[in-house]
Each structure stands twice: as C-alpha cells, then as structure tokens.
C-alpha cells in the first residue's frame, strides 16, 4: 500500500520564501558573530592542543599484536584477520612452533606478521574477528613514515606498540 505524505499547504508568506530566508540569515549571522567574538570554541588546535587523555577506551588507532601475561604471543596465525581485512593490509606467514618451545602445545604461530599502515583503515575488523584476542586497535593515531616500506610494520614493531593484554583466552594454559 502506498504511503502518501501530503505536501504541506504553504501560506503566501511561506511561498515568498523571504521570511524563511531572513530567518536563516539571522541564524547564520548569530553563529558568525559568536565565532567571531570567540564565544564558540569547538575546534582543537591540533599539534599544540591534544585530547589524548580523553580518548575513549574503544578508540580505534593502530592495530597491534599483544602478548599474554605469560609472555606468549597470542596470535596463532589463523589468518582470519588477513581474510577479513577490507583493504588487505595484513600479511601473515604462518609457521609451526618447534617441539621444544614452551608453548609447543599451541603448535602454530605467525613466522611473519605484517600490517601495512598505509593501507589500514582502522576499521577494527581484525580485532573483532580474532578468535585469540591477539590483535587490538591501540590509541596510537599519529602513524607516519618517510617511505612506504617504513609504514609496513613487522611483528616486532607490532608487539612493541601492542604490549601485554591480560585475561580472556585461557585455552592454551594448562587450566584449559
């Protein structure tokens, strides 16, 4: 059934547009004057002023890898993040943990894990998809480099920014 929205009947004054235009002009002029005399201050002057301490917990900055409280790298190279990443920023080379490793039980780990920060769009999909809670978007947002190669972050760098994240996955400790 069509849903018909009747056009409002306009009075003559409304049809002339002019009152509405004047009303609009008054509004914009008010904003203009308030900004001009410094009563409105919304914009932060970025490099001088920062808002870092107010960033919310869910802020989506650089994606990074984290280790758990036993210094185990959480990532098991399942490559789900590589799959889900919309701009294909992630490249993983999976590998098998050596039998003498303390975490041999986990069997699999990423030999290489690279995120191309020039590609990343900070969507957070990788964090959401990760079954091991191994990848998190941290609060670093000023990510710059002088070359493309420099912007491809390797595993070492990702762990450096990521640090340690406690709790959550208990599958690989002996409690299981």
């Amino acid at each position: 059934m069509p849903h018909i929205i009747p056009r409002p009947k306009l009075t003559f004054a409304e049809k002339m547009y002019l009152p509405a235009i004047l009303g609009g002009l008054v509004i914009t002029l008010r904003h203009f004057l308030r900004s001009l005399f410094g009563q409105t201050r919304i914009t932060l002057q970025y490099p001088e002023q920062k808002w870092d301490e107010n960033l919310p917990a869910h802020y989506r900055g650089a994606p990074t890898l984290v280790k758990d409280e036993w210094d185990r790298e959480r990532c098991v190279a399942c490559q789900l993040c590589e799959f889900i990443c919309p701009p294909r920023a992630i490249t993983i080379t999976p590998g098998e943990l050596p039998a003498d490793s303390r975490w041999a039980k986990v069997e699999k780990y990423p030999e290489q894990f690279e995120i191309d920060m020039t590609r990343c769009i900070y969507c957070g999909m990788c964090e959401e998809v990760c079954p091991e809670q191994a990848i998190f978007l941290r609060k670093d947002y000023a990510i710059t480099g002088l070359s493309r190669a420099e912007m491809v972050y390797d595993k070492k760098k990702l762990y450096e920014i990521g640090g340690v994240m406690d709790g959550l996955v208990n599958k690989w400790n002996d409690l299981k």
Binding site: F32, S35, L36, I42, T43
Partner: peptide, 10 residues
Amino acid sequence: RVSAFIQDRV
C-alpha cells in the same frame, strides 16, 4: 573564514 565561522569552525 566566514563559512567557517558560520559553521562554528575555525
């Protein structure tokens, strides 16, 4: 500048 001011920007 004017547009910025009208829109509460800088």
